[in-house]
Design a protein around this nucleic acid. Structure first.
Lengths: 323, 323
DNA sequence: ACTTGACATGTAACGCGTTTCAACATTTAG
DNA sequence: CTAAATGTTGAAACGCGTTACATGTCAAGT
């Protein structure tokens, strides 16, 4: 493996000049540039990325921290990776599987300079602790967050959820159930607030078990339907789901139970992923890809000291066959 | 930011000894270890990851190269990331979006020592070219591949596909259509071979447009159904799909067109992802998660010089409502 | 008492670019 | 024709651990 020093020696110039050629510095004469480039080609030279990272103090790598990648995250991940790579940044995946220690690993990696910044979604560690890593680099969250050290690209969940709620009300449904996500997240509390407000506004019936939290997956959606519809007492006639995965599970299981959708039970998803389209589920369009781009821009801004503006994005309701 | 040198000076020991403490070398007395550890804690010291990578010549990072992450890749990605992290390796995502130059970036990054190894799936560059990067580090492919420089964890697609073919034959279907994937991949040619053999064995009817290639996505699946069923002439009564995404699209569109599944048209997916389960699609179980683990083990083996054995994995057919 | 070996620790080179500051050469302006 | 400006290039320090090899010490073996 050849290195910069060899190029310098062979060309008769100093390391500094070779470095200038590599970095396209204008302070090199064309002749010198040509000479050096020729030698680099002959030796099949490429600079060592680690050496660059070490001396620059930056890796041009950004960590994405999640519990695990699922269908809902897919557009976020793809869009983020794509955007980052346009600017020469690579994306490293950190999945915790719910283990706080593994999650923390990502933050430690930022402290150790292996990544320049982090994007996080739902977190399992104490926020206080995570925020404290803000001093080691930019942290941007996909969830709404009230921490000065952590910027957020999350949208106003209250408004988004309200869109879904008003929609089903307009369709004539009144017995509304909610499959909420992570109970401690700001996203969930925004949605809960919307639900409470709509209940008050329209004086809707409420049952304690109609608003469970911690529902994220297909399987959980399936189970939820069984519980809701097999319980004694009054049943809901519409379920608003934390995301499209849950909605898919709900729809699937309801049909399996012989329940007519949307006549007997309406289903609303969230995020409007490909899955919602495929299954024909009414869903609240969440401009996830745009959020990912925004997340990267925020990071880049912090990294370059050019403070990018927080983009303004909106929810939309996509009506399909389940309402 | 404190560094190893400061710890050495403050503790009165040399850098070498401090390094030994960091690396849990047994050649340090307990007293010394304690002293040094205490100082490291006081200064809130952590070693710089880039410096380690530079001097060790390894980053403990593995690149995963794909056109883009989709639902089918999800279990592979998650399983790979999870397994790698157990061994202290991080996973970097490289998505090319079909652009050869972007794909090549990943290989160049290995040359520049930013990643220790690569896992690839479908590739858009010339294989000859990609193989030549084998000298810079291990490359493992998720696709079957006939290159000594690139190991493969792909399974025998011939047998897997045959499983699906024999199944639909047994169910009485004879007009078989295939939505094949990437035309140039070894995976596809294995499946094509299986199809040809079954056609010969059972003397099945064949139409030129019943075996298109290049079908990977939901949308393409949807379109395919329209084409196949609206064409003049004989229509197939079963479609075997390149993956579950395509099967989902096919199923979706067929139902929308009022076609009865499985009476008028059977659908078989591939990979048996969560999606197949949700939609009740018969699918060929492809032990993707296990392949990902295997891929990592192969890489680790090459990296550590301990040659891991290629695991033997099997396909299975999961019958659901679409056949 | 003397050698041998085990253990603890230090020295210095190494991995490889980047960057600041200084120096020198060549134009250009006056 | 000189002073100032502009353009080239180099020396050396810096970023930070790792590791092969050397040295010193003390206890066990004979």
């Amino acid at each position: 493996m050849s290195n910069l020093d060899q190029i310098a020696k062979l060309s008769g110039f100093s390391k500094a000049t070779v470095s200038r050629v590599l970095n396209h510095s204008p302070h090199v004469s064309q002749t010198t540039r040509d000479t050096i480039m020729k030698i680099m080609e002959e030796l099949d030279y490429v600079p060592n990325g680690n050496a660059i990272s070490l001396s620059k103090g930056q890796t041009e790598q950004i960590g994405m921290v999640t519990e695990g990648i699922n269908e809902v995250m897919l557009p976020f991940l793809n869009s983020f990776v794509e955007t980052a790579s346009q600017y020469g940044y690579q994306t490293i995946i950190y999945t915790s599987g719910g283990d706080p220690a593994k999650e923390l690993q990502a933050f430690e990696d930022m402290r150790r300079k292996r990544v320049d910044a982090l994007v996080i979604s739902t977190c399992v560690n104490d926020l206080e602790l995570l925020s404290s890593y803000g001093k080691y680099g930019p942290i941007v969250s996909w969830q709404r967050m009230e921490r000065p050290e952590i910027q957020s690209v999350a949208m106003n969940q209250y408004e988004g959820y309200m869109l879904g709620l008003e929609h089903v009300i307009k369709q004539g449904y009144r017995r509304i159930a909610n499959a909420f996500g992570r109970p401690t997240s700001m996203n969930t509390s925004g949605r809960m607030q919307a639900y409470q407000d709509i209940v008050r506004k329209y004086n809707l019936p409420v049952q304690p078990d109609w608003s469970p939290t911690g529902i994220y997956s297909i399987r959980q959606g399936e189970q939820l339907v069984r519980e809701l519809l097999l319980n004694p007492g009054e049943h809901p006639n519409v379920i608003l789901c934390a995301n499209d995965l849950v909605a898919a599970g709900v729809l699937n299981e309801a049909r399996r139970m012989g329940v007519k959708v949307p006549e007997e039970l309406a289903v609303v998803g969230f995020d409007n992923t490909e899955l919602a389209h495929t299954l024909g589920i009414t869903s609240i369009y969440n401009p996830i890809a745009a959020q990912a781009q925004n997340a990267f821009q925020l990071i880049l801004g912090r990294l370059k000291g050019t403070e990018a503006a927080q983009q303004q994005l909106e929810f939309q309701l996509v009506k399909r066959a389940t309402t």
